[in-house]
Nucleic acid binder design. Structure first.
Lengths: 138, 138
DNA sequence: CTATGTGCAAATCTTTTGCAGGCTA
DNA sequence: TAGCCTGCAAAAGATTTGCACATAG
């Protein structure tokens, strides 16, 4: 089981052409070990990593998340001016942002429909459409 | 003319219940003086203010933008993890984010259609739906 | 062996805050 | 006058970087 997920992490790294160092495998493991999508902040992943018993520096977590994004394994989602979120799911999909907890989750995409997206102006193309549904507790 | 727009800025401040201090009037002037919508960053507004010959501190620009938002005169839009944009237009509308220039503009809203928005989960309500269309130069 | 990756601490950058003095109502 | 504002500088966070050491291929 741990075996299976460790392989998952390594395969994921390989897919991005990244060397499987101890730190990267540990982080990859936490991110995709169980096949679920994750939305993490650098601090959050760092804490989870320490909790799991691995020794990794915060700077490495930042650098590694950045490397994962550049390798096309994750994408950065901006919803809060003073914190970056990193998402393991790569397709264009809407998010729920829980304002009270500062948490980001996937929104059920099956229902959302965006039609008549404005045309990209001359000389440009749409690189991504971010949809963030901000939720307030009632 | 300067007269007219100065009045516009003052009226705008009054609408938010804010005292018309020299600094606020100067900033309001730059933001809504000509009746157009603006998308600014604190640094950008600060520079524009200095250019116009007014003396205002950067801290005051930050505090003032924050005050304008709290007064319901502007809204903060997050598109870039390390910079906040402030928009004078208050309704829910989509934005174009020009990745190369780091600039934010309104996207033509007349065509956009968002249907079947996912329902807000139990105990929450939708506070806002942010749609950012990221543009890449080709 | 060589190129990459990592850790640590220091540096950067944006934004906020404390406090003394200034200005609006 | 009383309370809200402003300016400055220092503080606070988040993220990046420089550099010496470690390690994958």
């Amino acid at each position: 089981m741990a075996q299976i997920s460790a392989e998952r992490g390594a395969a994921w790294l390989a897919r991005g052409g990244l060397r499987p160092t101890r730190q990267r495998v540990a982080l990859a493991e936490l991110l995709v070990g169980d096949g679920e999508n994750r939305h993490v902040t650098a601090e959050g992943l760092y804490a989870a990593c320490l909790d799991s018993g691995e020794r990794v520096s915060l700077a490495t977590v930042y650098n590694t998340l950045r490397a994962f994004c550049e390798a096309g394994l994750m994408q950065e989602v901006v919803v809060d001016g003073h914190r970056s979120y990193f998402d393991t799911r790569m397709d264009d999909h809407p998010h729920f942002y829980w304002e009270d907890r500062g948490e980001l989750t996937d929104a059920p995409v099956d229902q959302l429909l965006i039609a008549n997206l404005p045309l990209a102006p001359e000389g440009t193309e749409v690189s991504r459409v971010d949809v963030v549904i901000r939720l307030r507790r009632i």
